[in-house]
Design a protein around this nucleic acid. Structure first.
Lengths: 214, 214
DNA sequence: AATTCTGTTGATCAGATGATCTTTAAAAGT
DNA sequence: ACTTTTAAAGATCATCTGATCAACAGAATT
């Protein structure tokens, strides 16, 4: 594209000729940069461009990943891993705490994790590509987060209309859409997403007649 | 990829050697198939693969579009055009009709238009690619649909908490997310989206103390 | 039926791209 | 200091991909 080759031009580090990193470290460095790069341009980003951003030869990449797909898999792992804390299910179902408070805590932490450009975009790219990790993640989310959340809502719902799984997905989707607008569509973000999340939760709870202290 | 060349193997039409279509018709045919194809595999789909699906030579494409980007632009136009009816703004602000009813009518029609795989995916692909049409569409949507919708809500809101633009985006996002789950992530869709949309609208309205007949 | 017009094909190019392999040189071991 | 080990670079391959252009053939015109 552009003849960037001299100096002080790269996004990453290009200045120092520091070579021969320990393999584990180099591998990690490659994956980290690949996450950022692929998040920007998509999973069809070129290995040469990625190598350039790393200040490294293209062939080096294949020293750590025998194929590009293998690198992308590593990117998936890196990005998907630890995105769903294991202790959320129990904290979401801890009935000694008001549901509203539990929801606020969960979505506060969760949004902090997912309202991140690299994650958001790679999640979308991999979703469009039909990656299995994407399906597994969403199934997992439904099983260990949203379904318990439905149970908690049902337990407290005072209205005639019973909550359904779709109601939970609607709550979830409305919140996630904030991140989509911001990072996928690059629209201006709300100054304080936490406030909007709180409103979404209140809207959800009040619809089922659940108060702040229930 | 696969040596499909003989017969009865293509997704589109491959059987008949019908050649020499009138230019306008051929062009339309190409764009139509391109929409489907790019919606499936992304905007980095190959011209040769597209030509194969059309049962046509790859070089023919460049007889109608001097460059691939030009074809993609045509795909954008085709897909974006007419996706926002011009009469929605006035119908949404027609205060002789209850707001709930207006919202139901709008999102019933709108969801019928956008809950379509090709649209949904190309919108997402173009959004990730940062296409200007995408930004313009969202700005337009905000200006002529969501902002008036906020005004209508403000006009009827009876609660202490005043509706904000973010509330409208939350309503919208929650609804759109149904389509995202279905067509981007390819998750099982709710049997009847209209019901879920109605619930989302009711949740929204009730939060501001707006009744079904207001 | 012959001629003209033009939609379509087939061959091909130039650059890009994933991947391989030999060579170089930095670090570890002696 | 010398040798060994092995990251990393450099050159290169085979294929893919967007794009070009001359040649072909179906349809309209005369």
């Amino acid at each position: 594209m552009d003849g960037r080759n001299d100096k002080s031009d790269m996004a990453a580090d290009d200045s120092a000729p520091r070579r021969r990193l320990p393999p584990a470290e180099r591998r990690q460095q490659i994956v980290d940069e690949a996450v950022q790069y692929f998040a920007e341009v998509g999973l069809e980003g070129k290995t040469r461009e990625l190598a350039k951003r790393l200040g490294v030869t293209q062939s080096l990449l294949f020293n750590y990943f025998s194929t590009k797909d293998e690198l992308i898999e590593a990117v998936y792992e890196k990005v998907y891993i630890g995105r769903l804390s294991t202790d959320w299910p129990e904290r979401l179902t801890d009935r000694s705490v008001p549901l509203r408070q539990r929801l606020l805590a969960f979505y506060s932490e969760y949004s902090a994790l997912i309202f991140e450009r690299a994650w958001m975009r790679i999640f979308m790219f991999s979703g469009l590509a039909g990656a299995s990790l994407n399906h597994r993640y969403l199934k997992h989310l439904g099983d260990v987060i949203l379904r318990p959340l439905l149970a908690e809502t049902e337990n407290l719902a005072r209205n005639t209309s019973r909550p359904t799984m779709e109601d939970v997905w609607n709550l979830h989707g409305g919140i996630v859409y904030i991140g989509i607008r911001q990072h996928i569509y690059r629209m201006p973000a709300p100054e304080n997403p936490e406030d909007e999340i709180a409103r979404a939760i209140d809207k959800y709870l009040s619809f089922f007649g659940i108060g702040p202290d229930d």
